[in-house]
Design a protein around this nucleic acid. Structure first.
Lengths: 243, 243
DNA sequence: TCCATGATAATTGTCCGACAATCCGACAAT
DNA sequence: ATTGTCGGATTGTCGGACAATTATCATGGA
């Protein structure tokens, strides 16, 4: 009948105030926060309380420390930080490998198409490097998986769309363990991946969005099929990847 | 030449240990954590240190409190929590409205298709309710926007794919402010949205994945066009939405 | 027997003060 | 210009403290 009249604890209010300042660009990226003692003085709370608030902001990636630095500075969340939270949530929501495949199938062709529409030379360069790294990765499956992820990352970055970059990252994190299995167990996987990368690369270089999307679609479906061929269960829950 | 030799502070190590226990299902969802004093005793650190670690886990959505409760319990991150971090990051990465549109165009048709393939009766029900809520929302644009978001949410949930649910949520958060503008300024927007919802609804009910995807594609493109017609700048940065 | 009530213990939120480690900037010495 | 040294500033961690709130339980009444 009545909603509980709640008051948030001080550490949460302090956190929200600072968060608001950052999101409103009032505290721009790179700005150094006042010292903990000074914050405690300004907010009129104890330093311990300030520290609890800062820890929350830190795990959101909104503040961080410069390498070897002591003072906290405002940072924007790296795609890794966002992806970490995402994968974590996904792992606890018992997402299955097939779910990730389905999502990849929906998202990645769009990313490839967007990258093709942009056709930045730097992107083509980076894609080529990633493809080369993949073919050169001999028997080192970890290296090969890294190269595949790098290829996808390059596409997302090349789309010039930060939304794609952030969407792509967690999916890559979830893809990698399974991909390693496939590359290890399915002999023809290497060849097929390499071919798909070449085709996508050419499509992007030619600014052919439709072709890029189509090949990416095949690329992802290949992954799914490879998983089945390898005798791995598509309904298995994804583990919490690196992050 | 040399990597910096770093040692993480105690509050971070404590956080990581607890996080690991949660992600490995060792501490299952709903489990109540030991009290702060007890954790401090077990980890052999001060309670303040434990509290800093807990604040980090809390902002990741891995632990929370039951309504009016005092003890912390293990929870899985709600889609809202994930979306919050995502939108936050996007806002700081200066994502533009057109970027969000592009992402919607890539993701949502896939979600609609997946939902159609599932064709759960509950999904159809929920979609119908959302559509009805939209048409019934008269001049209340906030209500209309909420109904649209609910329609998308229902689709994502109906896909049976938690990845889609989590991908969808932040995009909805970013979509809403702009959508409100459009509904306010473009007279025919209501009719077009209503029609698209009906078509998608029918496609899902008929388990016609292709049709669902196609109509969703038109639906999203409509949004983009409406934004232009309304004279709003597609290159404007998205604000940090509710969350 | 079962439920409401009140007393009591446990737990969190917040504060204070303290100290070692270490980072920063300045300054001197080679 | 590089290195050594020093004092101040800042963080990481600790110990203890107390009020407010919640959990627990015994008790008495229906």
């Amino acid at each position: 009948m009545f909603e509980p009249v709640g008051q948030s604890p001080a550490y949460r209010r302090v956190c929200e105030v600072i968060r608001g300042r950052i999101l409103s660009r009032d505290l721009p990226e790179g700005a150094v926060l006042p010292t903990e003692t000074e914050l405690a003085r300004q907010f009129e709370v104890n330093r311990s309380t300030v520290r609890e608030a800062l820890r929350q902001l830190q795990s959101n990636g909104l503040v961080g420390r410069r390498r070897g630095g002591k003072r906290l500075v405002v940072t924007r969340p790296t795609k890794e930080a966002v992806a970490g939270g995402f994968s974590q949530a996904l792992a606890l929501h018992e997402a299955r490998v097939m779910d990730v495949c389905e999502a990849l199938l929906a998202v990645e062709p769009g990313i490839a198409a967007a990258a093709a529409r942009q056709r930045g030379d730097a992107t083509v360069q980076r894609l080529r490097a990633a493809a080369q790294r993949f073919t050169g990765a001999g028997g080192d499956s970890a290296e090969a998986v890294g190269a595949v992820a790098e290829f996808f990352d390059a596409l997302a970055a090349g789309s010039g769309n930060p939304v794609f970059v952030l969407l792509n990252e967690p999916l890559m994190g979830l893809l990698q363990p399974g991909l390693a299995d496939i590359i290890d167990r399915v002999p023809q996987a290497r060849r097929r991946i390499g071919m798909a990368q070449q085709q996508i690369l050419q499509a992007v270089a030619a600014a052919d969005a439709d072709a890029a999307a189509a090949w990416m679609s095949r690329h992802v479906q290949d992954f799914r099929r490879g998983y089945e061929v390898a005798g791995l269960p598509l309904a298995a829950a994804v583990g919490h990847g690196p992050g």
